[in-house]
Design a protein around this nucleic acid. Sequence first.
DNA 1: GCGACAG
DNA 2: ATCTTGTCGC
Length: 225
Amino acid sequence: MNIEYIHSWSMEPVQAIDLQKKLRDKLTFEDYSREPRLVAGIDVSFPFREIALAVIVIMEFNSLSIVDHFFSLKKVETPYIPGLLSFREGPAILDALSRSPEVDLLFFDGHGIAHPRGIGIASHIGLFVEIPTIGVAKSLLYGKVESLPREKGQSSRILSPGGRLLGYALCTRTSVKPVFISPGNRITAESALRLSIRTIGKYRIPEPTRQAHILTQRLKNQLVL
DNA sequence: GCGACAG
DNA sequence: ATCTTGTCGC
């Protein structure tokens, strides 16, 4: 766990935005051409209004079979504000990660650099770990897609207002709305896309994040019952 | 000032 | 994200 950028998570929106602008310059982007063995999907649910349940699902990259899982229950201290998602879900996620063994790659439910200030949850959390992180979002927050990919496996670029490549809209099922892939930290948009494509299963949401979501919902219910 | 707006 | 059953469509 890289403690170099640790900071408080409870702060006012203006302070949080200020911190994001300062942290975005710490992000790095490099190709990832090797073959990851273990990857993990991360998702968060809310069993109670102010309690976040973060789940880490570890799976084999080549078979997409689940190997193990870890979770954490944490009280939330900030409301959900578009662009500041990491401040709400970050604490629970980092705690769950501290209980989980190291893997080669992390997939998040949300964006990486396809964000107003270039530092979505996948990028922000990515500063605390030493492995590459990828954002897999279900809807667009920032930027524009060049065209809508409608055939499974196809993709189109997500561009910033200034024309910078932020990531890709990836069609994971023919004629179904795409998911939005963007690099978090320590990886390029191209590599993030290539690796994400390999985690596509039979559904719209790629397996790592999909399995994490299923488990986060299941654990939430087991908690009440 | 008017929209847009991850989970 | 969360509160919730059935139902339309590929």
